[in-house]
Design a protein around this nucleic acid. Structure first.
Lengths: 184, 207
DNA sequence: ACATTACTTTCGAAAGC
DNA sequence: GCTTTAAAAAGTAATGT
């Protein structure tokens, strides 16, 4: 848990199921400010101000939640949606299981990085560094299976994790690999 | 049995047709970019590898050809910018970059990241700058790399700023606008890189 | 010359084209 | 593959004053 405190979770993507079927046109009227344009996208979009999240509701009853920075806010967001739908006389499940699919976090190695040297040390096969296209070096870690974006400032973005522990594992892993080749 | 033969012949014909079409496209693009023959051959080899690995599925022949040329230029250390490649195709720069990255990984091309000085000769030629200026620009870039001033920065922007400084030093001054045009970056970027290079490397424009 | 907004990259789920 | 959502990193681009 030593590095955990230095990891900042920026976004969580999760999903759940609220019913077998949902009438999105009816929900569009019940949720003020929601966007529903089936021609453009099959899901209904609804944004909450507190917590600041965005929800996608589908006619299959499946619901996605994005933007939350912790699990409590994911739960809070889903509960708020459930309450609003109930008030609009729309039947939905009460305590649906919530599945986390992706967690985006930032970590700071607190050391400037020479991305060209890192690309060669980690192996051009495992890494992608195209400064003409993007300033970050893309490192696909196989275990845990996440993707890290390394920047010249030493900041690291981790995405693809389903659990917070995976972020910590990945961060410790790169840190050790970089220390081993003396690039940190 | 006869059907099977017909099918094989058809597939073979289709494959041959696509290959010759692709190689014609490759020649057309390469000509418009004044790319030398050895680089065109490298690009053709890369394209054939992509075909063998079934990489054209879900992608356009034009996009893969563009990616092959971009990769070949990188391999021979005379990179063209994605904007330059995109200027001779209908394929968008974003798609060419995406295709190139997928090819680099899947075909294990192991291409090193492009460096600012890979662009110096080409940019300086277009600007009709002297050998002295090119030499100066390369010296500045070596200092920049040695001092870790290039991580994450666009190679063309750093090269453009170094060339701008070199042109001032040798008294062959080129405007930021002219350099920005050949390098495919904005004047703002040249100014930002110029500031960083002159400040952190303590460069003076006298001499 | 500045500032602000916007776009580049990574990830995942959803339903449908 | 694409469409839509959110979010960070840092660089570059496009607009705006």
């Amino acid at each position: 848990m030593s590095e955990m405190e230095k990891i900042t979770i920026e976004n969580i993507v999760a999903s759940t199921s609220l019913a077998e079927h949902l009438d999105l046109s009816k929900i569009a009227l019940a949720l003020e400010g929601s966007e529903y344009e089936p021609e453009q996208f099959p899901g209904l979009i609804y944004r909450l101000k507190e917590p600041k999240t965005a929800v996608l509701i589908f006619r299959s009853g499946k619901v996605n939640c994005t933007g939350a920075k912790n699990l409590e806010n994911v739960k809070k967001t889903i509960d708020i949606i459930i309450e609003k739908l109930k008030k609009a006389s729309i039947e939905v499940y009460d305590n649906p299981d919530i599945i986390v699919h992706n967690i985006v976090a930032v970590y700071d190695l607190e050391s400037d990085l020479n991305l060209t040297d890192i690309a060669m040390s980690l192996g051009l096969e495992n890494v992608e560094y195209e400064p003409e296209q993007f300033p970050g070096l893309v490192y696909r870690v196989e275990e845990p299976k996440v993707v890290l974006l390394l920047f010249g400032s030493g900041k690291v973005v981790c995405t693809g994790a389903k659990e917070e522990s995976e972020i910590e594992q990945a961060v410790i892993k790169v840190k050790k690999e970089l220390q081993k080749v003396g690039l940190i | 049995r006869l059907r099977k033969w017909q099918k094989r012949i058809k597939v073979s014909n289709a494959a041959e047709r696509n290959l010759s079409q692709a190689l014609q496209e490759l020649e057309r693009m390469a000509s418009n970019l004044s790319i030398p023959n050895d680089v065109r051959e490298t690009a053709a080899v890369i394209y054939r590898k992509a075909v063998k690995q079934n990489m054209i599925r879900g992608r356009s022949i034009e996009g893969v050809v563009a990616g092959s040329i971009y990769a070949a230029c990188r391999i021979t250390n005379v990179p063209r910018t994605l904007d330059e490649i995109a200027s001779v195709t209908r394929v968008k720069k974003k798609e060419i970059g995406r295709t190139y990255r997928i090819m680099a990984r899947y075909l294990k091309l192991n291409i090193l990241p492009s460096k600012p000085d890979d662009y110096v000769n080409r940019f300086c030629s277009k600007l009709r700058l002297s050998m002295e200026a090119r030499k100066r620009a390369e010296e500045i870039l070596k200092m920049a790399v040695d001092n870790d001033l290039t991580s994450g920065k666009g190679p063309t922007g750093v090269a453009a700023a170094a060339i701008y400084i070199a042109s001032l030093i040798t008294g062959e001054r080129r405007t930021q606008r002219a350099i920005a045009e050949v390098a495919g970056v904005t004047e703002v970027t040249i100014r930002n890189r110029y500031k960083e290079l002159t400040e952190k490397l303590n460069l003076t424009i006298e001499e």
